Computed example of a mutant assay.
Amino acid sequence: MEATMRSGQSRRAFVATGVTAGSAALAGCISGTEPGSESGGDSYTVSMAPMGEVEFDGVPERAFVTFTQYADMAVALGHGDAVQTLFAPEMSGTTMTKFYDRLEGVEFDWEGLENPLEGGVTKEQLYGAESDVHFLDPSYVLTTQDDWDDDDVEEIADAVAPWIGSYHSGVHSEPADVYADSYEYYTLWELFETVAAVFQERDRYEALAAVYDETRTRIESALPPEDDRPTVARVTLGDGVFYAYHLNTPGFWQAETRPLGAHDALADVEWEGDWGQVDYETMLEADPDVILHLWGITPNYAIENVRDRLESHAAGRELTAVGNDQVLASGMRYQGPIMNLFQLEMTAKQLYPEQFGEWPGYESGDSYPTIPDDEQLFDRQRVAAIVTDGA
């Protein structure tokens, strides 16, 4: 599998590892020390656009983490203790824990972590954190922070620690101008491979990638014919509007919906930016069979309240999904590998219960629901063993 270059440039050539994820071979993205091997304190390099090759003196013990996918990746690789910071920790941490509750021995201590984006990213903040790696796309910093330029980015990389991240891979959005010719887009599992290279955890990565490959293959092979698939809107209910996301477009924000091939009820609705805003009239015109309420399993949105708000709205109650009790709690777009496995399973059951077994439902505040062993789409014990023992 290759990362996609923007601007029509040639794709970057990788050395195939033979490990599959999805339908293609996943790629190696490390030079110097072999990923997963013992480094013995020796330096090694990791390659990722737009940063290029970055050097590490040893496995990071302190990681500046922004979005949840990188914290989930660290946990999956056995390095959750390295996480120093976390975006919206009360939301992110509790949501991650909902999944980890179903994996024996897998835990993440998120309490007390500061939100690194709450007051904006500053050089003083990064100097003070003294991290060994910054899991943050420098292009995100340049496109969201007014007082940063590429010289500041290079200063932090040289004086503190490397940057590793690819924010714009979420929906294949435009990067900062300075990276216009060098930016590449990565899938979630390619990003995970790079983070595994940073932590020198090749074996754990390969083992989890194999679980993912088997899970995705199992799901894709059992999907009903396209004509029998529902129309779905993936939205978050706001104040009088729906914040909308597509189902099947490129990007790791769609990592739990794109493999399921449902019909995007909002496919013909266009917007600028990472997400759109649609009104009730647009939703009524689309009239999806199913509404997947993004962030619905987080503590920020009680799915019961969402349903009540829709049912009490003159237009909302006319929606087919509302009338048929198909307003369902969905996951987080900032998902790492463990979250992706659960969210794939959850969404497959929500959209195709005849093929994958009934979704037992979700109540706000609860952990991920218990699924009978014979109805699970991936092996919990296997995943837990990989995370806790590297097996």
Results as ranks from 00 to 15, higher is better:
1 M>H: 09
5 M>L: 10
6 R>A: 12
14 F>A: 09
20 T>L: 08
21 A>K: 03
25 A>F: 09
26 L>H: 01
31 S>C: 06
32 G>Y: 00
34 E>C: 04
35 P>L: 08
44 Y>V: 03
54 V>L: 05
56 F>N: 11
57 D>F: 02
61 E>K: 12
76 A>S: 08
77 L>M: 10
83 V>H: 02
84 Q>E: 11
90 E>S: 14
95 T>I: 02
96 M>K: 09
96 M>V: 11
100 Y>W: 07
101 D>M: 09
104 E>L: 06
104 E>S: 12
107 E>T: 13
108 F>N: 00
110 W>I: 01
112 G>N: 10
115 N>Y: 04
127 Y>A: 10
128 G>T: 01
132 D>P: 02
140 Y>L: 15
144 T>V: 10
149 D>P: 06
154 E>P: 05
158 D>M: 12
160 V>H: 06
162 P>S: 07
164 I>F: 02
174 E>K: 15
174 E>R: 11
175 P>L: 01
181 D>K: 08
181 D>T: 07
182 S>T: 15
184 E>Y: 08
185 Y>L: 14
188 L>I: 05
192 F>W: 07
195 V>K: 07
195 V>A: 14
196 A>S: 12
202 R>T: 06
204 R>W: 04
204 R>F: 01
204 R>C: 02
205 Y>K: 13
205 Y>N: 11
225 P>S: 15
228 D>F: 07
231 T>S: 15
232 V>D: 01
234 R>A: 08
236 T>G: 10
237 L>R: 04
238 G>W: 08
240 G>H: 09
260 L>Y: 00
263 H>R: 03
267 A>P: 02
272 E>D: 14
287 D>V: 09
289 D>S: 11
293 H>R: 07
294 L>M: 12
303 I>V: 08
304 E>I: 06
305 N>C: 08
307 R>K: 14
314 A>D: 14
314 A>K: 12
322 V>T: 03
333 R>F: 10
343 Q>I: 04
344 L>I: 03
344 L>Y: 00
344 L>H: 00
347 T>D: 04
347 T>G: 03
348 A>F: 03
348 A>W: 01
349 K>V: 02
357 G>T: 11
365 G>E: 04
367 S>H: 09
368 Y>M: 10
370 T>V: 14
371 I>H: 02
375 E>F: 08
376 Q>H: 07
376 Q>D: 05
377 L>Y: 00
381 Q>I: 00
382 R>K: 15
386 I>S: 04
391 A>F: 07
